[in-house]
C-alpha cells in the first residue's frame, strides 16, 4: 500500500463521514444550507412547471457513459435529476421520457420512472417504454434521442451525463423542438460544445448540484457541502504548493 493509496483511502473515508454528518438532522438544523443562485437551474424549474401546465412532457437524456466506467457518476447524477424532475412534474398526466446511450442506464431509468410513479401515486401513467436506449453508438444515440424529443412533443429538454462531440447534434437541433434546454456534462469537450450551442448550461461541478437544487434531499445537500470543503482544501494545498515551489522549498 503506497502513501497515495493511504491518502486516497482517507479522502474516501472523510468524504463518506462528511456526507453522513452533514445529512444528520441536528447538523442540518444548526447550519442550514445556503444556495447560491444558478440561473440555468432556476429556469429549468420554471420550464418543468410550464410543461406541467401545458400538458407536455420533459425529455431527459443521460449521455453515453457505460455503467461499468468511472465516468458514469455524471449519469448517476442524471438519474437523480430524472427522479427529481419526475416528482416536480407529478401533477401532469405526461410523465418524463428518458433516453440513454447505455443499456444498463436505460434499465435504471425505467426503474427510476417506476419509483417516481409509485411515490407520487401516478401508476396509471407509468409506461416502461418511456425510458429506453436510443442508440448503442454515440451518433446513433444522439439521433435517437433527438427522435424521442421530437416524437414525444417535449417542450423541456434536459441533457445531463457524459457526452462527447455528438452533444452538438442534441443541443443544436433540440432548440427547434423544445422551448427550453438545459445542458450539463462532466466532459470538457461537451462543455465547450454546450457553450457554443446552448443557451442554458452548467459548467464543471455545478452538474453535481443539479439534484440538490431541484429537490430538497439531505444527502444531496450534504454532498455539496463536502464538495465545498474539499474544494477549499485542494485550493489551499495548490496555493501552498505553488508558494513553496516559488520559494524553492519544494
Amino acid at each position: 500500500m503506497t502513501a497515495w493509496d493511504v491518502i486516497g483511502f482517507l479522502l474516501v473515508l472523510a468524504t463518506a463521514a462528511g456526507i453522513i454528518i452533514f445529512s444528520s438532522k441536528q447538523v442540518r438544523g444548526k447550519y442550514p444550507a445556503l444556495f447560491r443562485k444558478i440561473p440555468a437551474i432556476t429556469r429549468l424549474k420554471r420550464a418543468v412547471g410550464l410543461s406541467v401546465e401545458d400538458g407536455s412532457r420533459v425529455h431527459v437524456t443521460l449521455g453515453k457513459a457505460d455503467l461499468t466506467e468511472a465516468a458514469n457518476t455524471s449519469t448517476l447524477v442524471g438519474l437523480s435529476a430524472l427522479h427529481s424532475i419526475g416528482q416536480l412534474s407529478a401533477n401532469s398526466d405526461q410523465p418524463p421520457i428518458c433516453t440513454s446511450g447505455d443499456g444498463g442506464f436505460a434499465l435504471l431509468s425505467k426503474d427510476v420512472l417506476r419509483a417516481v410513479a409509485m411515490e407520487t401515486n401516478t401508476r396509471e401513467y407509468y409506461d416502461p417504454d418511456l425510458g429506453y436506449l436510443s442508440g448503442a453508438t454515440p451518433f446513433s444515440y444522439a439521433l435517437g434521442a433527438l427522435d424521442a424529443l421530437e416524437e414525444s412533443g417535449a417542450k423541456t429538454n434536459v441533457l445531463i451525463g457524459n457526452f462527447g462531440v455528438e452533444a452538438g447534434w442534441l443541443t443544436g437541433n433540440a432548440e427547434k423542438h423544445a422551448q427550453f434546454t438545459l445542458a450539463a456534462s462532466d466532459s470538457l469537450v461537451a462543455q465547450a460544445v454546450f457553450m457554443a450551442t446552448s443557451q442554458d448550461f452548467v459548467i464543471g461541478e455545478e452538474l453535481y448540484a443539479v439534484p440538490a437544487y431541484l429537490a430538497y434531499r439531505p444527502a444531496h445537500i450534504a454532498s455539496l457541502r463536502v464538495q465545498d470543503i474539499l474544494r477549499f482544501l485542494v485550493g489551499g494545498a495548490l496555493l501552498i504548493g505553488a508558494l513553496l515551489k516559488s520559494l524553492g522549498l519544494l
Binding site: 474516501v12 468524504t15 463518506a16 456526507i19
Partner: peptide, 19 residues
C-alpha cells in the same frame, strides 16, 4: 468534476442516493 464525482460515487456507495 473529480470532487463532484467522488461525492456522488460515495453517496451511491453508502446508500444515501439510490439509482
Amino acid at each position: 468534476i473529480a470532487l463532484g464525482s467522488l461525492a456522488a460515487g460515495i453517496r451511491v456507495m453508502i446508500g444515501s442516493d439510490r439509482p
